[in-house]
């Protein structure tokens, strides 16, 4: 085992959060076999039921099926437990894909800004402007304009994160471009694209991974907030935010319908944040100072 990997796994918050994330991943992958039913199936005879309700559901084909709604049913008679379990898939995917998208875009723009002085002026002014718009507001606007679907929600959450990544990559490139190994490569007439890809990018990987985990954590939260406000994924899609949004109406009678998804949402975000903290400690001790 490589020393970095050993150091990572012996870090308590990294190993703990990795374990938690593996459990969540297992839930997401195994969702259909975890005693769930179709998360979109509506049982109009049993809407807004409390946890543990036994009921006989009439299926669309006319047959009947005995069911136990572990966490109750929502305003359309959908099984909340199944919706939460299936919602794990959406949340984890949004977190990972948003992080990857914003890292890729930010990397590209940051390298351009850091390496080419002319692009720097223009790009950084644009980034400053984008950062002045509060992230959630920008995401809401983008979803409103583009329409709500999984790809548009991911783009809408990822774009407000791009300026921060761009800034980070730019500052890394600015310090790296004057390092002797880059100068050596340049004096050997290495093409700029190769210098950026082979010499600069690999040295920026550690802080980028750390940044990526924090983006993933905030993306999971933002997706839940957007859905909760009714501005995210369409309400029939099983997501934690949509379950909570549906529970808002009957909060005083069935507070659980809002609070049950929290039992996965908060551990998920907490685990990703702790993973980020741990990775930062191990991979990049100077990260905190570099951020400014």
């Amino acid at each position: 085992m490589s020393p970095v990997l050993r150091k990572l796994l012996s870090h308590p918050s990294v190993s703990l959060s990795c374990a938690a994330l593996l459990v969540l991943l297992a839930i997401a992958v195994a969702a259909p076999w975890l005693h769930t039913i179709d998360p979109a199936a509506m049982d109009y005879m049993n809407v807004n039921q409390p946890p543990g309700t036994h009921a006989v559901a009439a299926l669309p084909d006319g047959s009947e099926q005995a069911r136990t709604y572990l966490l109750g049913t929502d305003t359309y008679g959908r099984d909340i437990y199944s919706r939460i379990v299936f919602g794990t898939r959406v949340s984890l995917m949004v977190g990972v894909v948003c992080a990857v998208v914003s890292l890729c875009l930010g990397c590209l723009l940051g390298m351009l800004a850091g390496y080419f002085r002319l692009a720097d002026m223009l790009l950084m002014r644009v980034m400053d402007g984008l950062m002045a718009i509060p992230a959630i507001l920008l995401a809401i606007t983008l979803v409103a304009v583009l329409g709500a679907s999984l790809p548009t929600v991911i783009v809408a959450i990822a774009i407000p994160e791009v300026p921060r990544v761009t800034r980070l990559v730019r500052s890394l490139v600015l310090t790296l471009r004057d390092e002797p190994f880059v100068e050596a490569a340049r004096s050997l007439a290495t093409p700029t694209s190769l210098i950026l890809l082979r010499h600069i990018l690999p040295n920026a990987v550690a802080p980028l991974i750390v940044q990526g985990t924090f983006i993933a954590a905030s993306a999971v939260l933002t997706e839940a907030v957007l859905s909760f406000l009714g501005l995210g994924l369409p309400p029939e899609v099983a997501t934690w935010g949509n379950v909570m949004a549906d529970g808002r109406v009957n909060f005083s009678e069935q507070p659980g319908h809002v609070l049950f998804p929290v039992l996965l949402l908060v551990p998920a975000v907490l685990a990703i944040n702790l993973l980020g903290d741990g990775l930062r400690d191990v991979l990049d001790p100077k990260f905190d100072r570099r951020k400014n």
């Binding site: 954590a217 939260l221 839940a224 907030v225 909760f228 909570m244 909060f251 005083s252 507070p255 809002v258 609070l259 929290v262 949402l265 908060v266 975000v269 907490l270 944040n273 702790l274 903290d277």
Partner: peptide, 22 residues
């Protein structure tokens, strides 16, 4: 402070509404 960053605002809101208001 780690927990504070991981809990959405509306969850804190509902956790306050439940005991204090309802």
């Amino acid at each position: 402070s780690v927990l504070g960053f991981s809990v959405p605002v509306f969850v804190v809101a509902y956790l306050l509404i439940m005991p204090l208001s309802l």
